[in-house]
Write a protein that binds this DNA or RNA. Structure first.
Lengths: 362, 362
DNA sequence: TTGTATGCGTTATCAA
DNA sequence: TTGATAACGCATACAA
């Protein structure tokens, strides 16, 4: 087994072995067209023989470009964020860029530290996905041309400003929620409920979108339930509230919550979808395997990541500028959890014996 | 909104404003004990006022330490790998290390390129999780003291060598599979089947472990079915094969496959768990929400990632050495998919009408 | 087509 | 306790 070289071999070593100057060796290795064919071959041979690996730090220091992209996201263990990361990494790697990934975990201080790390390493571009940090705080530390926000709920709805023309990448979450609500209405559901964490700008956006979509249907009503931020871990309370006064259909903040709720509802007298239709959001794989299959909205997470990296790399080229902000389309996936429903179809008597609100089915 | 400084602020600027030399400024900023209190305060004030952010490339170049850790894994979109990444990142960040993440996607060339990137950036340590690259190839390019393999199937079983005393981090997958098989036997199952991709060293290890665990139970039998590498996307063929000649229980390569199979089996006359028990592996969240809840093995993925980063950071301290290799324990999680079974309990007549082998339930 | 010389921003060595 | 100076490894302006 060949060992890695003890003392790191540097360009000077390559140049010496090839019998050229450092400058020539440097040029030869990056295929500068004005280097002779024989010289180039000699340099390449020397580099290969010595196992030369250029030092990125030195290169960056001199060239003022690092070919490093930073990605700050909320949680790598979350499948949706993981897909964003996967798309980002794939796009970056395909163009020879390295990727720093840090997680914010919903903690503004952590996000600030991540930003510091990116700036220290002089990342050519930075993407922030689902971050809680204020965009203004980011722009105070990083030139706007080097940052992309991957954030459907950008900016906070509260301040009413339009998002900037560049540097924002969104999926059409509002449109997606409107689609699910319209779908429910078309399928015959009228008494709807929205269940979400109850806080966070993303929840606010989804809640508003769902609500707005009902504006044209006077007969329809929507009420709102809070699951809490960690509600998807144990939505017993929500399941209980639903069981006490069941709507016709539930619109969930995301698939994670919808699937947990679906599971929890098995402990109540409510049968999905017969008594209660349910829709999720995100299109995670588990939604395709649940029973009943979940009606949901497919969000192009990989694509969001990929596009973010591409935007940053375009802006990173010299003279390059950040492309215009984009909104990527989402797609309704109709599953089995929202069947067509005609008035009065609802079961009058539960098929399943009443179960305790907690614990059954454990 | 404060703008980021136009010309990057460098140490010399800070020193000038603070009225000291660069050397003093440098020392003051890193809390060198021999710098006077007043000087230090002046330097810190100047740095803060100018918004100084040290240049990591310059620092690394000089200090010969980057505080960068590289993580090469198979696929960020996969929840198991995502958890490894999350643990790795959290541990690294907690000690001020930045993390490069690259994905190999089962492609040896890609893995080589990732390795190159890590070496170019002079990562202080490199973790390889579930990679297909030959460890010898890695050690030829990177000193062994800087690499950790996170790989339960290290080394390839075929060559029979013991894994090295340092630099390998494993979960006890073999033990986990033995646990599931023993559990099945204890629950009364005798005719078992293993379903796995049919290739890859990880599959070989799990298959062998499952098989070995049956050695002490002469009455029990195990047969082996191949789902193909992408079998979890559509395990129709496996489901069909199982329906034709059903075993009592199926041991799946992982949860992803088990859940997909569980879903597919709904289109057959086989009822889980009445006709067929099923166990998975990994302990992904969806396994806790499936119907029936999946019996599986919880693998400490986050912990694996965390520990890998810690090992590398320990080895990275000067004079530091890589801690001994470790095997992290796994835990059996008994769900509803493997109920106790007494001989002859099996249903004689299918409750559900025969469905076509494909397509039903779409 | 190639070589020489300089500087990127920081830290470490030595001297004061 | 502080300052001057020399690297670190590479890329480029300029000269040849």
């Amino acid at each position: 087994m060949r060992r890695p070289p003890e003392r790191r071999v540097v360009l000077a070593d390559v140049a010496r072995l090839a019998g050229t100057s450092e400058a020539t060796a440097s040029r030869a290795l990056k295929n500068d067209p004005r280097i002779g064919e024989t010289t180039r071959a000699a340099v390449r041979a020397a580099a290969a023989k010595l196992g030369y690996v250029p030092n990125a730090a030195a290169r960056s220091l001199r060239a003022k470009r690092t070919h490093i992209l930073g990605l700050l996201l909320d949680d790598l263990a979350d499948p949706v964020h993981g897909k964003v990361a996967a798309g980002f990494e794939a796009a970056a790697a395909s163009q020879g860029h390295a990727v720093f990934i840090m997680t914010g975990l919903h903690d503004p201080d952590r996000e600030q530290r991540a930003l510091t790390a990116f700036v220290e390493h002089r990342a050519d571009g930075i993407a922030l996905a689902s971050c809680v940090i204020d965009p203004a705080d980011v722009h105070a530390r990083v030139p706007a041309e080097r940052v992309v926000f991957v954030q459907p709920d950008y900016p906070r709805l509260a301040d009413g400003r339009e998002p900037p023309a560049r540097g924002v990448l969104r999926s059409n979450d509002a449109g997606g929620f409107a689609m699910t609500v319209r779908h429910l209405v078309e399928q015959g559901y009228r008494r709807l409920a929205y269940v979400g964490p109850g806080s966070g700008s993303s929840d606010a956006l989804r809640r508003a979108a769902a609500s707005d979509a009902l504006a044209g249907t006077p007969a329809a009503r929507m009420r709102f339930l809070d699951s809490g931020v960690d509600g998807w871990r144990d939505p017993s309370d929500v399941a209980g509230a639903l069981a006490e006064d069941p709507p016709d259909a539930v619109v969930c903040y995301d698939d994670k919550l919808a699937l947990a709720l679906l599971d929890r509802l098995r402990s109540t007298r409510l049968l999905v979808p017969d008594d209660l239709a349910i829709v999720g959001f995100d299109g995670i794989p588990a939604a395709r395997e649940s029973r009943p299959r979940l009606t949901t909205v497919d969000v192009p997470s990989v694509e969001l990541g990929r596009r973010a990296a591409e935007m940053l790399m375009i802006a990173g080229r010299d003279g390059g500028r950040l492309p215009p902000s984009e909104i990527l389309p989402v797609h309704l996936i109709v599953g089995e959890s929202t069947p067509r429903r005609t008035a009065g179809e609802r079961r009058q008597a539960p098929r399943v014996a009443v179960a305790s609100r907690r614990g059954a089915g454990e």
